[in-house]
Write a protein that binds this DNA or RNA. Structure first.
Lengths: 100, 100
DNA sequence: AAGATATATCGACTTTTTCCGATATTCCAA
DNA sequence: TTGGAATATCGGAAAAAGTCGATATATCTT
């Protein structure tokens, strides 16, 4: 766990929002056509629409969150689905109370 | 609690180190002349020396950490002492497991 | 009151981050 | 196998953050 990389990933309003939305995907995103939203997460396009930023920006943001370990991705066909890596949040929370 | 401001404050190697040092000040700083290190914290000069960055830089960093709520400061005479605000870390930890 | 010391603030420059448009890649469907 | 759709990557302009030296402010000592 690279804490600095994680905190940098969390230092952006849109990225924080994305993480929040992905905590309850069925609440924040329309029903998903092809895949189970809890199994694989939400595809880039849905997230982009909701965030209202450029496609390339969101793609990069998701990649930043994934590199920091906060998201996991699955490619299915032409779609890439992103979901939270809950373990990372627990680890981070522990780090903050114990190590930092 | 402004989470974004907190994460920005944590997005810097030196600032993370400072927080870490202030968790066990007696371990990381030389014995303090005038004030009880646990009561009021560590003065700017000590922190600056240990960090090895310019005085103005450290002064600003401490101010950033304080504005984010992670540090508290006490001015005594010509010295400003900084110590951790442990409550803020607990709140942040909780936020990460529950809200984010 | 004057000099010394600790800290804060300011202005400048450099590096990093944000965000976009254009283009490339991957995969599906006809 | 060609066209279209979803995503990724690249290059760049603008904004923000990092860092310094110089200077200001506050306080202590004499």
């Amino acid at each position: 766990m690279d804490q600095l990389e994680i905190f940098k990933a969390l230092s952006n309003k849109t990225r924080l929002q994305i993480l929040h939305w992905l905590k309850e995907p069925e609440r924040y995103f329309p029903p998903q056509e092809h895949e189970d939203i809890h199994q694989v997460g939400v595809c880039v396009g849905q997230i982009q629409q909701k965030a209202g930023l450029n496609q390339s920006t969101i793609s990069e943001y998701l990649s930043i969150l994934q590199k920091a370990g906060l998201l996991k991705s699955t490619r299915i066909g032409q779609w890439t689905y992103y979901k939270r890596n809950e373990e990372a949040f627990l680890t981070l929370s522990q780090f903050i109370t114990e190590e930092i």
